[in-house]
Every structure is written in structure tokens, then in C-alpha cells.
Design a protein around this nucleic acid. Structure first.
Lengths: 148, 148
DNA sequence: TATAATAATGAGAATCATTATCATATACGT
DNA sequence: ACGTATATGATAATGATTCTCATTATTATA
């Protein structure tokens, strides 16, 4: 997560937006900056709090645009707020530990050996359902410091 | 999932409800029956469709009661509907494959060797965050037959 | 098995995160 | 700079979920 520079993120997001016929506007740049510096998925209101120049309705609209373009991923926990983060192919593969009490999230990673065996097993398991598997999502569920 | 009988499920649910000061009413019995026979997490409206004697507002209320008692688990996908299933300790540990297009879900299981190494790695990873880890949630993301 | 006390139900109203609308402003190609 | 297409912000609308409350069911006890 430290190896990717701001400039590289900008370039990727710009390319994704342009490919889908959208502009990399000032508001969208600020949005990407907020998401990048947070280091964890944020709710709409956390985003607006982080950068008070941003407007709720525009943030919602642009998060959807960025998601359609593939630059941003939507995270749902068990609380009532959707959270957003930069897509993994822009940053790097990681997982979330979710507080089952307040919905707060932290990022973490697993050894690549574990990731590999997981992927193999998932493909095998998927063959038994009739779904086509594209990806996986592994979350740890627990309690954050302030809820303990 | 085949080893648990209806009577055993009933007994467990009754016990969980009574422990938390609730009754195992007729409506709650029907709800458990619907969830049990579905074999996959259901939305509120899927539940009401499955058993037309059930009423939307009562289903919502009772799903919450059952969740608080620990008999039912809430599943959120990326679509706009929350889904519910019988808790794992009543049936058995399993995972979900979620259709990223329509939100439909199927159940699947992994080899216990994979589950074990996963658990070990999760504990280790959690030590680096400041969360206490209780559980994990592994979903495969893909496309269901009717969306392919 | 009646009774009283308590919890559950159903119908509808209320809530609130998210989306849609639309007049105005901004960005891009020429 | 100009004209056109897209983006923005303020506000209204939407819809899944929750809340309310008068009525009904369940349980414990005599």
C-alpha cells in the first residue's frame, strides 16, 4: 500500500474515468485524495467531514461514477452505511476487519501462501455451485478498540 | 446441513428465544421453517412470498428479534436488500457465493484444512490491528446462472 | 379452565440513507 | 474565446426498514 504513489493512482483513475466517458473533475480528484489518505473504507458522511468542500449529493453521485468506472469499491457492513475505498487493482489486495458493534473497518493482509490455497479451494467449491467465480471477499469480524 | 433435524433446530431456536425473554410464537415458527427450507439467505420479500400468511412488518420485527437472540444472521450483499439465514451454530459453518449482478446467493463449504489455516492466519493478522477477532466471513463473488 | 399479566401481531405512518431532478457552472475540443 | 457536453449543488423524491399502537395471542397462576 506504500508502494503506489499519488501520481500513479491519479493516472489510473483518470484512465478508468476517460475509458467510460467521464471527466476527472476537481470534485472527483478531492474524493480520490480523501479515500487514498484514509487508508480504510469511508462512509459518505466521513468523506464530507474529511473534506468540507465536498457536498453530500455530489459525493454520492461521484462515488457511483467512480464505482462504475472501476476506480472505487463499495463495502457493506452490518450497519446502515455503505462505505467506499479505492479499488484493489489501484492499491493492492487486502482484507477488512469489521467491528460488529459500530461498523468501523480496518485493513489487513494475509500471507500469499494462504491467499493461494484459498483461491484454489474457492475455484473447486464454485464448480459445485452453478456460479462463475470472479473474486472473493474475506472479512474478519470482531470488535474495535473503542467498542471493547 | 443434512444432519440437523427440524426438531433439533426448533429446540435450539426455542432455547435461544427463551434465554432472551421472548416467546417462540407461531409467526416465528413459520419464519424459521421458511429460512430452513430455503437453504440460502432470503430477503424479507422472498420470505413473504414463500409464506403468504406472513406480514412484512412482522417479518422485519421478528427477524430482528431472532437476530438478537442469535438464531438468525443478517447478510448484506451489494444490492439494496438485507438477507437472513439461520445462524451457523444452528445449521453448520458455510460460505456464500454472491452474484454481483442481482445479489442472489448460494451456500458452499470449504475443506476443513483450508478453514484451519485460514483461522490461524486471521488470528495473526488481527494481532497487527487493534481489533479483537471473533469470527470470519468469506464470500465468493461471481455471477449466477441467470445473470451469465 | 378462567383470569390476569405480558408479549406478539398487523396495518399503517415515520424515518433516513440514497437517488433523482434540474437550473447553473465547469471543462474540453475546436 | 466559443460552443457543447458533462459536472455540480440544492433540494425533492424514493423506498427499504423501523416505529407506533390498538388489538390479539400466549403464558403462568389460582
Amino acid at each position: 500500500m506504500a508502494v503506489v504513489t499519488d501520481a500513479q493512482v491519479d493516472e489510473k483513475v483518470a484512465s478508468l474515468l476517460h475509458k467510460t466517458g467521464h471527466r476527472y473533475s476537481t470534485v472527483r480528484r478531492r474524493l480520490v485524495t480523501v479515500l487514498r489518505s484514509a487508508g480504510k473504507p469511508l462512509t459518505n458522511s466521513q468523506i464530507v467531514e474529511s473534506d468540507q468542500s465536498l457536498v453530500q449529493s455530489s459525493v454520492y453521485r461521484n462515488l457511483n461514477v467512480l464505482e462504475e468506472s472501476g476506480a472505487v469499491t463499495r463495502i457493506v457492513t452490518n450497519d446502515e452505511f455503505t462505505r467506499y475505498e479505492l479499488a484493489e487493482h489501484i492499491t493492492e489486495h487486502h482484507h477488512h476487519i469489521i467491528c460488529t458493534s459500530c461498523g468501523d473497518i480496518a485493513d489487513f493482509s494475509l500471507p500469499s501462501s494462504v491467499e493461494k490455497s484459498l483461491n484454489v479451494s474457492l475455484r473447486q467449491a464454485a464448480n459445485r455451485t452453478r456460479f462463475r467465480v470472479d473474486n472473493h471477499r474475506l472479512d474478519a469480524l470482531g470488535t474495535c478498540v473503542s467498542c471493547q
